[in-house]
Amino acid sequence: MAQTSDSLKKRKKDLTFWQKIYIPEIAKGLALTFKNMIRPKFTMEYPEEKFIPPPSYRGRPVLVLEETGEERCVACGLCSRVCPALAIEVQAAETEREKERYPQKFEINMLRCIFCGLCEEVCPEEAIVMSKDYELAFTNREDAIYGKDKLLTPVSQLKDRIEFLRKYK
């Protein structure tokens, strides 16, 4: 604090004549204003225009749906265990598939999720990844619980993120 007032004092004393009469400084300021008025616009007109995040972005977690129409998830429950917000509920059950376990129920409570990405990091099957979806609005608590219907996302739509993970994880 003391330092700031010292430098202020110093500056006041050091002002030149032109600075003291003020007008050139106003002109300089206005020049900057006009320059920015004619510069190309930076604002994005959301929601008419959508922001497409880079692959490193952590939108809502989704489950990977293979081309065969089956989920990758084997319901190991690790994401549910690691989730610091206890957002994930998994109920496993038995299947005839090669990996004998699948999620009969998989729910993420988007009111709990904090988009930390730990579920994605811990998953041994690369079955849950962070998507680019950030549009989450609910009018009641029940709607915020996403089941398999909302979570399963075709792997083709998640290529970006999966490549990013393989490169950097």
Partner: peptide, 8 residues
């Protein structure tokens, strides 16, 4: 097998 194993 740990992810699909009940003993985990």
């Amino acid at each position: 097998d740990c992810p699909i194993c009940d003993e985990a």
